[in-house]
């Protein structure tokens, strides 16, 4: 079983252009900032949006613009779970779950609800459910129809932060029990990493990176991913032993090659001084502190200057160096702490 999709959608000046293959049993998280086109991608896979391109599941062609083929949503057997659940407000929980079933609907639905621990909510209306319960009912309503492809749009974002972790564990269990292909869309990296085998990073309607969570965060290829991995991402051109950044500054980095490269610097590899440091590090720049952000015992310091960076230092360093927004400081980074890879 596999899904092949080449999807092009253009609407109101926004263009989504995606080419992806997903294999059986895989959970793929489409991750990206708001407005990246994630929901449009899901809607296109569900057949709710007409596309240019080709979508094929296990050899069944859902969309093929060359032959003008478009299988309507109701004939695709894809399960789509909406962000805010979209339970039918005029039906009971049982009627909601039974909606997609043909024969014996209510009997099967009530068995599923019992198994999910929602037996006492069978006759409740959606408005009487908590956010977590509504999420589970919405997922059950889709799962009982035994879809060939499960699509989840921001499954946890409508939920209160306090219950998100619990519902996420629950969701991970249910996803594991579902045998087909699972695609979920999210802007929350934690959700993506917790639930998915593979991340597809979508930005501005294009896939900028794809791979396992570890691969993606180890070698970010966009600011969005770098931010979620908590690292500094610089882009420039390799000049042998140094990199010329797009803004004209240079940083020393052995083995930079002669091509366009990304350079990643971990914030804890960025050292701060009040006076220009003497000695080994070749990467020394003046900088100005823009703001400070306390994370447990560490403080993240955002720096402006020729090479904008985030440094992570201890609270005592902040005290000793009298760092506050507007402070002028010196930045040093050891060349060996910079990891360089082709862009």
């Amino acid at each position: 079983m596999s899904l092949h999709a080449t999807i092009n959608v253009e609407r109101n000046g926004f263009a989504l252009s995606v080419d992806m293959t997903v294999f059986d049993g895989e959970t793929v998280a489409v991750l990206g900032p708001n407005g990246a086109g994630k929901t449009t991608l899901l809607r296109a896979l569900a057949g709710l949006v007409r596309i240019t391109g080709h979508v094929e599941l296990d050899g069944d062609v859902f969309d093929d613009s060359a032959t003008d083929r478009h299988v309507p949503t109701e004939e695709r057997q894809v399960g789509l779970v909406f962000q805010d659940h979209v339970l039918f407000p005029h039906m009971t929980v049982l009627q909601n779950v039974a909606f997609g079933l043909r024969r014996d609907g209510e009997r099967i639905a009530s068995a599923w609800l019992e198994r999910a621990g929602l037996g006492d909510k069978i006759n409740a209306l959606p408005s009487q459910l908590s956010g977590g319960q509504a999420q589970r009912v919405a997922l059950l309503r889709t799962l009982v129809t035994e879809p060939r492809l499960l699509l989840l749009d921001e499954p946890l974002s409508a939920l209160d932060v306090s219950i998100r972790a619990e519902v996420r564990r629950d969701l991970a269990r249910q996803l594991a029990a579902f045998k087909g292909i699972r695609i979920l869309v999210t802007h929350d990296p934690l959700e993506a990493i917790a639930l998915a085998d593979r991340l597809v990073v979508l930005e501005g309607g294009k896939i900028v990176q794809s791979g396992s969570p570890i691969e993606v965060t180890a070698k970010p290829r966009s600011r969005f991913v770098a931010d979620l991995a908590g690292v500094n991402l610089l882009r420039g051109r390799g000049r042998g032993d140094h990199i010329e950044l797009d803004n004209g500054a240079t940083i020393a980095a052995p083995g930079a090659g002669e091509d366009d490269v990304f350079a990643v610097i971990h914030p804890h590899a960025v050292a701060l001084y009040r006076a220009k440091p003497e000695g080994t590090p070749r990467n020394v720049w003046p900088a100005r502190v823009e703001d400070l952000d306390l994370h447990a015992e560490r403080v993240r310091v955002r720096l402006g200057g020729p090479v904008p960076l985030v440094a992570e230092v201890t609270t005592s360093a902040v005290r000793d160096l009298h760092l506050e927004p507007g402070t002028d400081a010196w930045v040093a980074v050891k060349a060996t702490e910079i990891s360089v890879y082709p862009a």
Binding site: A46, L48, P72, T73, E74, E75, Q77, V78, G79, L80, F82, V86, F88, F99, G100, R141, T142, T145
Partner: peptide, 16 residues
């Protein structure tokens, strides 16, 4: 009317 109710119904295999 929120059109997503109709979309959700279609995704569950409901005819027009």
């Amino acid at each position: 009317l929120d059109q997503r109710y109709e979309e959700a119904a279609r995704a569950l295999g409901a005819s027009s």
